[in-house]
Write a protein that binds this DNA or RNA. Structure first.
Length: 193
DNA sequence: CCTGCGATTTGCT
DNA sequence: GCAAATCGCAGGC
């Protein structure tokens, strides 16, 4: 009986859309809080909606070209968004974590998100989950696949079946809207809908 | 439940 | 200067 195991760096060193799909059902941990990943999107330097489009490096997107398993956090409007870098070092590719189903530290999440916020609304958005877990630029550029990582992912006791997973174009972008790189589990297939 | 809109900060042209 | 990988809330159905 082995405890759920951390995802290692090899997990992230694969095509970004594969990693995005396989992250569904995995657990994300930071501090005392954790949640099950139920929505992701893939981004790759070969398409224009990606911050690393055409492989152009800027101060902001620098972590996207680092080792697989690196954390890339950026700010949009007033919130932060969490990404996990994929593929080979030097290739700009990352998975945006868009939603979690809260598992551990729910009271702490509610403290940060607001006392009146319902469980299902604690982390059902890329900015919301960063606020719930208190993720910000402090974690930008760190690794999420080392034994010592504060932010890390773990295997889950179950996985979602293909039938439970929806694949659609990505949300909130104006370019490359034809690419179906959003992967999510609808509320009806989750533990608490 | 779904759609629309404004807030407001940062990064890059 | 402008666009943005968003959110919350108002208002309609």
């Amino acid at each position: 009986m082995s405890a759920p195991q951390r995802l290692n760096c090899d997990f992230f060193a694969r095509p970004v859309e594969t990693v995005a799909r396989e992250l569904l059902g995995k657990n994300l941990h930071f501090g005392a809080c954790s949640g099950r990943i139920v929505e992701t999107e893939a981004y790759h330097e070969s398409e224009p909606s990606c911050h690393a489009w055409q492989g152009k490096k800027t101060p902001r997107n620098r972590p996207m070209f680092a080792e697989p398993g690196t954390v890339y956090i950026y700010r949009i409007h007033q919130v932060f968004c969490l990404n996990l870098v994929c593929e080979a070092p030097g290739t700009g590719a990352a998975v945006l974590i868009r939603a979690l189903e809260p598992l551990q530290g729910i009271a702490e999440m509610r403290q940060r998100r607001g006392e009146k916020v319902k469980d299902r609304d604690l982390a059902n958005g890329p900015g919301k989950l960063c606020q719930a877990l208190s993720l910000d630029l402090d974690q930008n550029g760190v690794s999420a696949c080392l034994p010592s990582s504060r932010l890390y992912l773990s295997e889950s006791l179950f996985s979602y079946s293909e039938a439970e997973i929806q694949i659609t174009p990505r949300i909130g972008i104006s370019k490359a809207q034809e690419i179906p790189w959003r992967f999510f589990v609808p509320p009806t297939s989750r533990a608490f809908p």
